[in-house]
Design a binder for these strands. Sequence first.
DNA 1: TACTGAGTTGCTACAATATAACGTTAGGTG
DNA 2: CACCTAACGTTATATTGTAGCAACTCAGTA
Lengths: 163, 163
Amino acid sequence: MSDHSPAFHDHNHETCTHDVLHHAEGLVRQEGLRLTPVRRRTLEILVSEHRAMGAYEVLDRLAADGFGNQPPVAYRALEFLVEHGLAHRINRLNAFAACMHPGEAHSPLFLICQSCEAVAEAPADPVRTAVEKAAVQHDFSVERVNIEVLGTCPTCAGNGKEA
Amino acid sequence: MSDHSPAFHDHNHETCTHDVLHHAEGLVRQEGLRLTPVRRRTLEILVSEHRAMGAYEVLDRLAADGFGNQPPVAYRALEFLVEHGLAHRINRLNAFAACMHPGEAHSPLFLICQSCEAVAEAPADPVRTAVEKAAVQHDFSVERVNIEVLGTCPTCAGNGKEA
DNA sequence: TACTGAGTTGCTACAATATAACGTTAGGTG
DNA sequence: CACCTAACGTTATATTGTAGCAACTCAGTA
């Protein structure tokens, strides 16, 4: 078992959930942020599903748990998580996913299964380097890099569902 | 000279416009596709602006030119262009841009200026290689790669407009 | 105890982006 | 021409995302 939690392999989900929540609490303490109930629950929802979820889907869960049921409730909690590196936004899907490598100062690379929408987050440091090289040739100063890879995860490939 | 930034470097815009249109006509002939007036005009609009444009913005131009003025008109033309590699979708901006390297079978890498929204398209073959490597480690089969880099273009950096 | 001020929440209302579905039109083929 | 298919333009609606405001929470403080 690797020290990261690849979404496309069996893994101890309780462990990865615990790790992510634990990191979030540490970060929050360290930075003087507030992991309020709605924010914490939002992160729990994302981690427990371990896939990209739309804001309105998250909102439904939150509402079912007694939080507000209007869009800003979800968007604000998600924005907080993204801003502090606890979750990522997957533009391709208009969706959000918990960050599974929190605190590693990584340039996230997302492997998005087109069949089941599972999202794995891979370390992308070599990719980041290549990106920087390309940017330099355009005199472009890089702030954030977002890499989204569409394809088929091993589970769906195994089910004969590949494109 | 136009009042917006072209793709970060001075270039002969008539030439690049001509090249892109010329390639499109060739592709269409080769593949038996139809570059209808609305599709051709959509491509011209994207090329002439040389930046990411929202679908509704494109639609306004099309309507002004006598084409339909309802969303599907723009979305369908844009979809056609994207599908055949003549344009790209920039998810981050919910926007579209003409492909400036048509026919090169590239994995597009977009440099998006957060200040002026100019978009440059860089060749990303080394990046693509790095991406494939990361995907293999997850037994993930890659179909399409989309890389969006946010930052500041040299023009805006020179203007001290980095905010 | 009460007061303040920043941050958070839930809400109403709305804006922006995108698609479904259908009848009509345009081009190609026998 | 008759026929077929792709494309077009339309109406209507779905989905995704924000602006802005009043009420509440909580830490700090008098």
